[in-house]
Amino acid sequence: MRLLSTGDPFGCLADVIDLPTVAPPSFAELFAAHYHSMVRLAGLLGADDPEDIAQEAFARLHDRRLRDDGAALAYVRSIVCNLTRNRLRHLRLARRRALDPPEAARSSEHAVIVAEDHRELLAAVGRLPRRQREALVLRYWLDLSEREIAEAMGVSPGSVKTHTSRGLSALGRALKEDS
């Protein structure tokens, strides 16, 4: 039997991805700067395993090898949104889990950090339609512009405006009803 094995079984071919022309530091820096916020974004969007989503998004970015940092970050954000959306759709957890992070993620100070009024508001966010929640999280947590939100959500800037406005109205109504 004579077969060429072009590398080791652990990921040989992948080992040549980071050839000098690919500028690996840029990926590493991007990862260091934004990984945690992508975990948090996935968590805020309702993912049951935010780290899984964030790692997958960065792995895909690595495959794409986008050299422009701005484009790369936008790409990762959109992948986090897509993967979270898919995850929720598949597992049908959107309503049951709402914005609850996984149990393991709760710190001992969690109950203190998330004050009661936050809970009420977050519960209302969790009940919003998926698109409205995405728009609100991207707008009010990541402080993205309408254009950036549109890119992340894969919709037009006009839709972002609509989702944001409807989301805020719905929150207002929900809070009034609760009080």
């Binding site: 975990v39 948090r40 996935a42 968590g43 805020l44 935010p50 914005l99 992070p101 993620a105 709760r106 710190s107 969690h110 950090i113 998330v114 004050a115 009024d117 936050h118 508001l121 977050l122 966010v125 609100l136 999280v137 009010y140 947590w141 805020l168 929150l171």
Partner: peptide, 12 residues
């Protein structure tokens, strides 16, 4: 909303 999302984000 900003404050609530910031607080919740710390939990991940």
């Amino acid at each position: 909303l900003r404050a609530a999302l910031d607080a919740r984000a710390q939990a991940f």
